[in-house]
């Protein structure tokens, strides 16, 4: 059953997977195009790091985009068919959802491997100034984990009912409204930064997205 679900999910999302894989391979290679000399001044080294840093935002963005696409694709056919097919299967709901989750997770592997290969190729091709190092494996590991976390979040939201999605959106919207109203009232309440810190800092769920996503760094 898992193989069939994996096959159908692959058919639905193969274009996204292939594009994501290609982007993941090219991203690290493009990010090091300005690395060209071992003897550089601190100013040139800083410029190189700034150039690489300007690409760094694309790694978590790509991870999120791939994860979002796969999570939505995993449930899109069921949503369209109002879950009649799934309900007709002689398996419990959790078992079916687990198969869908697993199939989508397997499809995250090609982009993760592509990024690792791209990072290794970029690290081999680029001339790294003295004192700087490359981090291809760490970058790929972080990319894979970020995809996994984002995929799980979007899969959970997508698996819920419209009402659940409405609750989630209402909570997010409510927080924004409260922040705007307290700011308008002149109150020193920093709700969004507080929640942002809880999400983005250790041990928050999105902590994996923070930090410097740089193939070349100190």
């Amino acid at each position: 059953m898992f193989r069939m679900i994996l096959f159908t999910q692959w058919k639905w999302s193969r274009l996204a997977v292939l594009l994501g894989t290609l982007a993941a391979f090219l991203l690290p290679i493009l990010s090091v195009q300005h690395a060209g000399s071992r003897e550089v001044t601190p100013w040139e080294a800083r410029m190189l790091l700034t150039s690489i840093q300007s690409w760094s935002v694309l790694y978590p963005t790509l991870a999120t985009a791939i994860a979002l696409t796969l999570a939505l694709m995993a449930w899109s056919a069921d949503h369209r068919g109002r879950h009649v097919y799934a309900l007709s299967l002689p398996v419990p709901r959790w078992h079916y959802a687990l198969q869908r989750f697993g199939a989508g997770a397997v499809l995250l592997i090609p982009p993760a491997i592509a990024l690792l290969i791209g990072a290794l190729v970029a690290a081999a091709l680029a001339t790294i100034p003295h004192g700087l190092q490359t981090y291809p494996v760490a970058l790929a590991a972080r990319f894979a984990l970020a995809m996994a976390v984002a995929y799980a979040v979007f899969f959970a939201i997508s698996a819920g009912t419209t009402r659940t999605a409405g609750y989630v959106l209402s909570i997010v919207g409510g927080i924004i409204v409260v922040q705007i109203l307290t700011a308008a009232a002149g109150l020193d309440v920093h709700l969004i930064p507080f929640i942002g810190d809880r999400l983005l800092l250790w041990p928050g769920p999105l902590e994996i997205f923070s930090g410097r996503w740089m193939l070349i760094d100190v």
Binding site: W94, A97, F101, V149, A152, F155, G160, I208
Partner: peptide, 20 residues
């Protein structure tokens, strides 16, 4: 490990969905 834990936790939330 924490990222993996969060991925599993959100996955479990999906398995416990109220849809059915």
């Amino acid at each position: 490990w924490m990222a993996l834990g969060w991925a599993i936790a959100f996955g479990l939330v999906a398995l416990r969905s109220t849809r059915w």
